[in-house]
Design a protein around this nucleic acid. Sequence first.
DNA 1: CACAATTCAATCATTTTCTTTCAAATTCAT
DNA 2: ATGAATTTGAAAGAAAATGATTGAATTGTG
Lengths: 250, 250
Amino acid sequence: MLTEERHRIILELLETKKIVRIQELVEVLSSSESTIRRDLSQLERKKKLKRVHGGASLLNQKKEELSIDEKLTKNLEEKDRIAKYAATLIKDGDCIYLDAGTTINQMIPYISAHDLTVVTNGLTHLEQLLAKNINTYLVGGCIKQKTRALIGHGAIDSLNKYRFDKIFLGVNGIHVDYGYTTPDPEEAAVKATAINLGQNVFVLADHTKFHEVTFSKVADLEEATIITNETDPETIEEFRKKTNIEVVTE
Amino acid sequence: MLTEERHRIILELLETKKIVRIQELVEVLSSSESTIRRDLSQLERKKKLKRVHGGASLLNQKKEELSIDEKLTKNLEEKDRIAKYAATLIKDGDCIYLDAGTTINQMIPYISAHDLTVVTNGLTHLEQLLAKNINTYLVGGCIKQKTRALIGHGAIDSLNKYRFDKIFLGVNGIHVDYGYTTPDPEEAAVKATAINLGQNVFVLADHTKFHEVTFSKVADLEEATIITNETDPETIEEFRKKTNIEVVTE
DNA sequence: CACAATTCAATCATTTTCTTTCAAATTCAT
DNA sequence: ATGAATTTGAAAGAAAATGATTGAATTGTG
């Protein structure tokens, strides 16, 4: 791959993710660590990004956001481990659905299975999927400006034409009584549709999502397997009564 | 192969791919590496592209700068005028379909109508449409790597749920007997579907497309109004017998 | 504080790409 | 045709990019 091409992709990734890890870039761009490091140095010299330990970040943020940024980094690491584990569930030849959103996005660099068919409603996933030469389908629909997700009837109708080996979703809240929830009803409807299109449904959620409830219900707990890094034994036990829950420890 | 011809092809490739490798060009144009390198140097001197290690990339030039270049950007200028005129056909409140491809892409900067709903199968149009705050819908489907167009049954099914006030298409060939044609059968099928979804169908085509025939038929001439800058009186007359044709002169 | 684990910068050998040069082939005007 | 100008392809050495390796620096953990 050409240097220019890599630089372009790195900057595009940064736009959507704010922070990228070197290892992610190594995977997505199939280049060596050395090359990626050189790329980041060059882009930093051109003032296109800021290098940080472990990767690079946008150099846009104000002082207030900096502290938030540190938390974000930590949270990202958690999410990253969850995503990495989830990616290992994908096997050669699978047809999978990848929900829009940053949580699921983090899976992509770790996908190593071959001969995949991926369907997604997340425009932000596209560059990475195509860079990995994965056979990618988009659902139709209305584009939600903020998150670049495809939603609405178009998305739901498109989805209903597919069946998946595995379905990976992100949500905002997980609650014993209220199940999975997310703020936007339109997005919830898409997720609710996807959840019925296969036997193996996985919801990825770091520990901050537990006991949270947001506006729109996606489904009941038992309709998906939860993949998380939550380790509080009480919480785990509580949810294990209702559904499968896989805890990523390492 | 003539130098001029190679230059034209190189620039066309660049338009769709953003970046091309020298080796690619060597194969496509069956010329030696030396010749390609010379071509790229010349085109760089003319400010048509930027050389990068391993190939060449598009330099993001603004429209104004383009028109400053005179005779040499003639083809681009032509396309631009056609696109500009086509954009004026769009009225406030319209629901329109924009086909994938560079010809139609050029319309977007000139769209000034308000309260639009745009449906497209071209991923490359998205950023510009969203930047203009246009209510944008994507059709679903399989992503064609090379052109970033959505194609296949998914795209066709998605499309069939809509009806449009105006439909704008690009094609590769226009011929009195064979109608509108384009190389990829999958893309042709999408265009053929779109053409039936409204009364006002416009095909944008600069003069190089006339009398050309490519692999896959999209539709008969009479199914769309041609917008062009072709000025040869005989050609115009010949086509006017079959369908509406609007000639952009200024 | 000390330990292990990452991450980092620097360096080197290898491969790829670039520039320059030159001779053969082609085009053009006499 | 003949010779001049242009275009082309090949070759050689220079430059750039790449991946691997090393030891130093940084981070997280007990």
